[in-house]
Nucleic acid binder design. Structure first.
Length: 258
DNA sequence: GACGATGTTGGCAC
DNA sequence: GGTGCCAACATCGT
């Protein structure tokens, strides 16, 4: 489910929680809890923000971090199901953590942990010069680099494929060899596809919804992701699917060059 | 029913 | 710091 645009959409749908107090936390599945959440009990939520794919609740003391993994959801006043693993009772309303595959994680931290501090820059905030320098500091396949959260924070499989297609860059292109004009094109494509996806409230591929249960619509604007065999929107060549570092990768063999 | 694929990260070996 | 491979888990399509 959740890459940068989806997590951003969830965070925006949680803004009403600002000022709420966490009165009680019921944990039904320990697997999704990274550490002891007791310190968050009784704390007031000062703000809800996104960093990469993490949702960060800044509390009046410490932080509550939520990573949605592949199928995690935060639902306001939603229905409790067999996949509801944590229940946050607030002074007004209830926040549920639901996650069928249980790849997501919740944790409390006094200080932001290294896994958040060591994330790469936000793709929508990084400057071109920073981006270009980081690109050339590595010698790896472009698709792998875009998925590396220490390079840029928040891009996942969908938006990596979509950005590379929009920039005309092959997923196996070597990052260190990407020319400045092509790097500029990729930088722009990443920002454009993420901004458009946020505007569409994310991609609902299987069951992604925001905290109010609303789906996104960007899946209708995907040009390559899960479009294997469909004609390329630019040249008509059937879209190909291959594996790059074990991730399904969709691209046009004619439009995307190494 | 079996099999393979699915948006995530993390740990291992090399 | 790279890559490849596997792991966690449930659901869905063939």
């Amino acid at each position: 489910m959740p890459e940068l645009p989806e997590v951003e959409t969830v965070v925006r749908s949680l803004q009403s929680l600002t000022g709420r107090r966490i009165q009680n936390i019921e944990i039904r599945q320990q697997r999704v809890i990274r550490n002891e959440l007791d310190p968050a009990r009784g704390r007031r939520i000062q703000s809800v923000k996104r960093r990469g794919k993490f949702i960060v609740f800044h509390l009046d003391k410490g932080h509550l971090l939520v990573h949605l993994g592949m199928t995690g959801k935060l639902l306001l006043d939603g229905e409790i199901t067999k996949h509801t693993h944590a229940i946050f009772a607030l002074d007004r309303g209830v926040l549920l953590y639901t996650d069928s595959r249980q790849f997501g994680r919740i944790e409390y931290a006094d200080q932001l942990p290294a896994r958040v501090e060591s994330l790469g820059p936000e793709p929508l905030l990084v400057t071109f010069d920073e981006f270009y320098e980081a690109l050339h500091a590595r010698k790896t396949q472009m698709k792998a680099l875009l998925l590396n959260q220490r390079f840029l924070a928040g891009i996942g499989n969908i938006y990596a494929d979509e950005a590379l297609f929009r920039a005309g860059i092959h997923p196996r292109a070597n990052s260190a060899l990407l020319s400045k004009p092509r790097s500029r094109k990729l930088y722009a494509a990443i920002q454009q596809v993420l901004a458009e996806a946020i505007a569409a409230k994310g991609s609902s591929i299987s069951d992604y919804v925001d905290s109010e249960g609303r789906k996104g619509s960007f899946q209708h604007q995907h040009l390559v992701y899960q479009r294997t065999g469909h004609p390329c929107s630019q040249c008509g060549t059937p879209i190909k699917r291959t594996l790059v570092t074990q991730r399904g990768t969709h691209y046009c063999s004619k439009c995307q060059k190494k």
